[in-house]
Design a binder for these strands. Structure first.
Lengths: 368, 368
DNA sequence: CGCGTCGATGTAATCGATTCCACAAGGAGG
DNA sequence: CCTCCTTGTGGAATCGATTACATCGACGCG
């Protein structure tokens, strides 16, 4: 591998001058610059990022530890994170925790060993000592999607409460009264919040959420299937199952199908997290859509602000209900003429909800 | 950040001894080892991987440049790659090329700058000068899924020819005669091979593949939609559309749905690459499944062999047809009593094909 | 007793960059 | 003409590890 010394020799200057040219330091003569550039080109020289990082103590690399790469929500998040980071001149190393705290720790540790400039995490659990230490030690850090309470780290996330209320209102209007939820792990904030939001929304409609209608899941498909089977075994099964993420919804669909039942005739289904395939499932699935791309971008901006010495801000963006057919009769858009902004009683149409029609099968953009 | 000097001072030994303890060098006294370990623990010392890499000229990191992270096939591939790499003591940095040669080059360049130990690539195009140079310069490299002909780099991939023949046989048996394909970019090997395999299989059945039945796609959903619309506009539209990857199948589904047509009654649909959601689409989609996890693992093993001085082997694994309902009447398993191993004439049952029934909705394991 | 060997340890060179500091040349100003 | 800056440049220290080489004491053996 050719090093800066080779370039210096070839150009007939010192390594200091080569370095200055490469870093656009102002006081270099036009002549020297030209000779160095020529040498760089003729040798095909590329600076060694490892050596540079050692000296400058910055890697221009961000670490991203996500809960599960196989979850399309996180894949999309990862993609937008990488995009924004690249635009700002950073690379991203992704670690997949697979919803396992030990794996999460493994990745945090290796990323820290590599001296990444900052860490983006959606924690799998309530917070390992490792991560808490890193945060306290001053590692630039931002939580995305999920977070750990009581730590002074900015959080970038979506607030699903409004959309969950819209969903419950929608379900209530369709005549559903026995609503169940498949929750995420209690150790995660999203695991707790979505249940809390659901329960609150039910109470506003005068419904309650009995324990047997709370299934315990882990955000993976298999757990969604198990929880749904348990619901179906109840003496009085729920009329609706709301899965707290898209993979558990997939599992729920598996369970329903295995029993030979039909959605929404025998049981309705809704999910948190909207993904492209929900348009084409049988039936299309009503879901709560997060502004995933914007979340990823905002998280990177917050982290880079922190790294570069500016004050980072926490960001909360609203999620939005997308109505499809999995909860019952397909609502005709004309029924929802002008969505109101204020909180609404249960018998009125849902706010901010998008009803998809056959004419607009792919994009979810229509805000009517 | 605490360095090896701090540890040496704390333990009352030299940095050399600390390094020896950390690298399990045999000639260190029990006493010194204990003192060093104690110092490491009390200071919470972690070696700086950047400095270590500079000195040892190895990063224990693999680069993976994939064509599109949003494609579930590649996500799964990335996951298995990371898993196997971790098992072998390597980290993985993923670069997403988004099917764009310029982005692919960007990632290859930054990975090379970071002095990764080896590179795993599924090339987006016929081969940029950058990648060819890297290969010739001796960078350990392995192609996965797609490859570049004429370069001396091991290839790990799936051979879909058998499965495509099974698919065509299956379609022929169902009475379909006008079969169309949405191809991938001609610059990719998978883009070409799948068309070639399809054409060959058609010929064996006495059918041909007119130009108008070859749609040009780019492995992304939008192109699948456009190609399908063009098929539907033909005076004599095809009876079957075979999408060369899962995203283009999604686009095809969009197009069919936008016309108010139904699968498989109005037009049949099949896809290369099997994904979990295909079980739950309306209707479930017949697809060709690659052994994705095994491909990722084999690719990593080949690359690490190359890095560590052993001779790497190219690997080709067979793909397999999974029959669902998107091409017509759901075949009853009893119709396929004993699949034969030898090549079969068109009117006999498909070889190696798995027919999914309602009793077995999730797993595709049954090989009967 | 003296010599060679071996095990444990420290000193210092090294990896490839960046950057502080010294210094030379040249121009401006008194 | 002598200072004083400014500009361009090179030498050398530095980042945090690994490792070749030197050193030193203990021990075995003739």
């Amino acid at each position: 591998m050719t090093s800066i010394k080779d370039v210096a020799a070839e150009a007939g200057v010192s390594v200091a001058t080569v370095s200055r040219v490469l870093n656009e330091h102002p006081s270099v003569s036009e002549d020297a610059r030209a000779r160095v550039l020529a040498a760089v080109a003729s040798l095909g020289y590329r600076p060694n990022a490892v050596a540079r990082s050692l000296r400058t103590d910055q890697t221009r690399t961000l670490g991203l530890v996500i809960s599960d790469v196989l979850n399309p929500y996180f894949t999309e998040l990862a993609r937008s994170v990488e995009e924004e980071a690249r635009a700002l001149g950073y690379s991203v190393i992704i670690g997949n925790a697979d919803e396992r705290p030990d794996l999460q720790d493994h990745h945090v540790r290796t990323l820290l060993d590599r001296r990444i400039d900052g860490l983006l995490v959606s924690p799998t659990d309530g917070g390992s000592p490792l991560m808490l230490d890193a945060a306290r030690a001053g590692t630039p850090m931002v939580f995305v999607d999920r977070w750990i309470p009581g730590v002074d780290v900015p959080v970038v996330r979506a607030d699903g409460r409004g959309a969950v209320r819209d969903l419950v209102t929608h379900l209530h209007r369709l005549g559903h009264r026995r609503l169940a939820i498949i929750a995420g792990p209690a150790a995660t904030t999203t695991g707790q919040e979505r249940v809390a939001a659901f329960r609150e929304a039910l109470e506003e409609c005068g419904l309650d959420l009995p324990d047997q209608y709370i299934g315990q899941g882990d955000f993976q498909a298999a757990s969604g299937r198990r929880a749904t089977e348990r619901f179906l075994d109840l003496a009085e099964p729920p009329q609706v199952v709301f899965a707290a993420d898209n993979l558990m919804a997939l599992g729920a669909l598996d369970a329903v199908r295995a029993r030979g039942l039909r959605v929404p005739d025998d049981i309705a289904l809704a999910a948190f997290d909207d993904i492209r395939w929900f348009v084409h499932t049988d039936p299309p699935i009503t879901a709560i859509a997060q502004p995933t791309g914007e979340l990823g971008r905002a998280a990177v901006r917050a982290l880079v602000d922190r790294i570069e010495g500016r004050a980072p801000r926490s960001v909360t963006l609203p999620a939005r209900l997308v109505v499809r057919r999995s909860c019952g009769e397909n609502p005709v858009p004309s029924e929802n003429p002008v969505p109101s902004e204020s909180p609404v009683p249960c018998e009125t149409p849902a706010t901010n909800a998008t009803a998809e029609t056959n004419e607009n099968p792919v994009t979810n953009r229509s805000q009517s």
